[in-house]
């Protein structure tokens, strides 16, 4: 009897912890939706802002976030996969390589504002790209790199040794095996990591603060050297700057809701891909 009681108490404790997590998530979605839903409309998503941000929509902001995110992934994806392939397939097991691995993991722990300052010093100033889509994409790309590398490494390690051997035994070269067998097999796993990092990159504020984002630009960005508006920074700006705090606040919640949906949508896609990968090996 006594044993059963303590067991039930334990289960109840676990249940409470789970409930707290769900509650936190639920209340975030509820409060953001309750305050932001009223400003959502077709024109909010498709028009440019005017009257000091209080009227019109946020289309250029969404477009800006899209460009910066796309740029970051285009930069980080090939680099990250190449790095993971080297570490998993080619690098000898040595102390140096271990240090590299540890460094990559530490890179993931660097606060995002530090990436922002780094981007300012290197891309904006040193390379002279200015505050631009290019600088912001590169900065966010570096932020995404450790995530992409570690998910790619995991995916590569999950490829069974037996099919590598099969490929080599047929007279394929090592690179041919990696290109034709290992990478395609690991691709769904790599993509899952990529998509999760897209979600992260799209939502980051600090790295683009000094490297890409502007409070207001006239219309849409014209080239990779343009400043842009981006959702996370736009929310921050609406809440802290401008002359109409009350009107701006509702729009900020609207933007948050759009960002939330964007990231939820992206994560949903990642889960879909992972399921598909599992069914492939099931």
């Amino acid at each position: 009897m006594k044993k059963e009681f303590s067991q039930n108490l334990g289960f109840f404790g676990l249940f409470l912890c789970m409930l707290t997590t769900i509650l936190a998530l639920g209340s975030i979605i509820y409060f953001i939706a309750a305050r932001g839903f009223s400003v959502l409309s077709w024109s909010f998503l498709t028009q440019v802002p005017y009257s000091a941000m209080t009227k019109g929509g946020i289309a250029p902001v969404i477009v800006g976030t899209f460009y910066i995110t796309l740029g970051a992934i285009m930069f980080a994806l090939p680099l990250g996969i190449a790095c993971a392939v080297y570490l998993c397939e080619y690098s000898p097991k040595s102390i140096v390589v271990n240090i590299i691995r540890i460094s990559i993991n530490n890179l993931a722990g660097v606060p995002s504002v530090v990436f922002g300052l780094f981007g300012l010093a290197v891309f904006v100033k040193f390379f002279g790209f200015g505050v631009s889509i290019l600088s912001g994409s590169l900065t966010l790309g570096i932020l995404a790199l450790p995530m992409i590398i570690s998910s790619a490494q995991e995916a590569l390690l999950a490829v069974p040794q037996s099919i590598r051997e099969a490929s080599l035994s047929l007279g394929a070269t090592k690179w041919g095996t990696i290109k034709n067998i290992v990478l395609p097999t690991a691709l769904p796993g790599i993509l899952t990591g990529v998509i999760l990092s897209i979600g992260r990159v799209a939502g980051e504020t600090a790295p683009i603060l000094f490297t890409a984002a502007a409070f207001y630009t006239r219309g849409y960005p014209k080239s990779v050297f343009s400043e842009v508006m981006a959702l996370p920074y736009h929310i921050y700006a609406l809440m802290t700057e401008g002359a109409h705090p009350d009107k701006q606040r509702a729009i900020a919640y609207g933007c948050s809701l759009v960002l939330l949906f964007l990231v939820l949508f992206i994560s949903g896609f990642a889960i879909f891909l992972r399921q598909r990968q599992r069914s492939l090996y099931g």
Binding site: S162, E165, S167, L170, N180
Partner: peptide
């Protein structure tokens, strides 16, 4: 050539499994 202890087909189609060796 070699045939292994556990069957180790590539996660590809039946056709591609055979044509792979020719392609490489």
């Amino acid at each position: 050539g070699m045939v292994f202890q556990k069957p180790n087909p590539f996660p590809k189609t039946i056709f591609e499994n055979i044509s792979y060796g020719l392609k490489v």
